[in-house]
Amino acid sequence: MTIKVFGSMLSHQSIRVLLCLAEKDIDFELINVELAVGEHKQPHILARNPFGQVPAFEDDHVKLFESRAISQYIEQTYVGNGKELINKDPKKAAVESVWMHVEVTKFDPVIVALAWELCIKPIIFKIEGNKEIVDKEQKVLESLLDVYETRLTESMYLGGDNFSLADLYHIAVIKFLMDTEMKKVFESRPHVSAWVADLLFRPATIKIFGVTVY
């Protein structure tokens, strides 16, 4: 049975799951959910995700929501497929886990706020973002990326010398922001810039962002 992902290429949470599937070399079917018309609040999506959000995920009888939990399920279930995304060494896995939590608690809030103002509002709602919010969140991002820059002088990836879910969790929303004024904030830090380039030119990233939704 083919894995089904109910989501949208406008949703970084959906793309996070698709990237994980691509890294694991797993076939899937993306069932597009029209966010602009509120399809994610319709009964057929609410039955799969009670919060009326995307993605929703089906793997035979396993039905999940929340992109990070789905990604961990994929990695733990399809251990022999594709790229290893959680280190088998518990000490190295613990470091990866630290940076997964950093992504959730520190990176995601600021980056989602910026993506909302710079990407979602103009693309979906055809309105201009709030410059005051952008300026405020940019300062937070700059301080955060200073920490990332220091970390990435120590290892090629956030969790160590191997690409992992700690890095993958960041990709989708960074890709969105590369088409905005925030690109310069990433590129002004050499180790962060190299890390971003590595993430965006991974075969799995190129594959997923080349997906055409009909």
Rank of each mutant, 00 (worst) to 15 (best):
I111F: 14
C119M: 10
D198N: 14
G160A: 04
K88D: 06
V211G: 02
D27V: 00
E58C: 09
V196M: 08
M178H: 03
D108N: 10
E58V: 12
G129F: 10
L168G: 02
E29I: 08
T2D: 08
Q53E: 14
S8L: 01
N87W: 05
V54P: 00
D89R: 05
L145M: 14
I3H: 00
G159P: 06
S71F: 03
I70N: 01
V54Y: 02
Y73W: 11
V211N: 04
W99K: 10
W195E: 01
H44F: 09
A36N: 12
S67W: 04
A113T: 15
Q72I: 14
E39K: 00
L30K: 07
K63H: 11
A69H: 07
V112I: 13
V185K: 10
A56S: 05
K121P: 04
I31Y: 07
V173T: 15
W99N: 09
N162H: 15
Q53C: 13
A166W: 01
K184L: 15
Y157S: 11
I120G: 10
I74T: 13
D25L: 08
H44A: 07
V17T: 10
Y148P: 14
D25C: 12
L141A: 13
T150I: 14
D60H: 15
V211H: 06
V102D: 02
L141Q: 12
